[in-house]
Amino acid sequence: MTNLDFEKPVSDIESRIADLKQMHPSPSSEIEAEIRKLKEDQIANLKRIYADLTPWQTVQVARHPDRPLIRDFIAGVCSEFIELHGDRLFGDDQGMIGGFATIGKHRVVLIGHQKGRTLEEKIKCNFGQACPEGYRKALRLMKLAEKYHLPVVSLIDTPGAFPGADAEERGQAEAIARNLMEMAALHTPIVVIITGEGGSGGAIGIGVGDTILMLSHAVYSVISPEGCASILWRDGTKAAEAANALKITAKSLLSLKVIDEIIPEPVGGAHRDYPSTMKVVGKSIERHLDKLSHTSTHKIVKRRFEKFAAMGRFK
């Protein structure tokens, strides 16, 4: 487990536990008691630290190398997943995946960004930065969902849409824009979950939905804190300040009414406890799918329009 800077007290305790275990391969009851106490200490420290993360610390948790990725959510939440490939136009972007999935009793179309775990995977996925063909693949699958009246579940975890010359050439802007318009009018329920990084246009490109959920240590922003700092502070190292100013945490976004609900992560973040994370995410998705399944499609689309039309604070 990679520990972050601000988790120092926790890593100290962890290394003490490891030392004790190493020194005492068959520990006495005394040593066992000490280890137990240290473990309690560790949890208390994690609780304390994670209860009060700064926005910049939250960014680091959202980007944690061990954070659950889309394949983990699929394995932990879906009883079945049949991946469907390609946009039928150009290629099969690995930065965006999707397919038919079963969550509880619900058959759905699941789409989402893929970051990749190993370096090789990451390179294949462009580190979770989808290309136009990724957004077009997602749209193709969403239209399929509409046709068979399957709800869409969209998992967001991306630093942003891929900023490459080839992506521009193939119309990154058009691909995202089209998804926004199509999702606004899609005649089937859409549940969106921001699981890690919600990076700007790359996130909203699959982020228009009836219910927007967010994991408690995920972030969602119009620009990365580093990008904002380098433009408005003219200093990329002022990312922590920018993160503060941009209001990117789940709590802030809930109070701004951009998201509907926060899914609480286990103590110390989703990366420390996959099973609990999957359980709470799965339950939450099911609950919202249940709710949406009782509403007529016509009403859902109308409410979706009203939801996004109401976004904004102006004078």
Partner: peptide, 8 residues
Amino acid sequence: GIISLMQM
């Protein structure tokens, strides 16, 4: 911030 993104 995010409110601008929501205008898209």
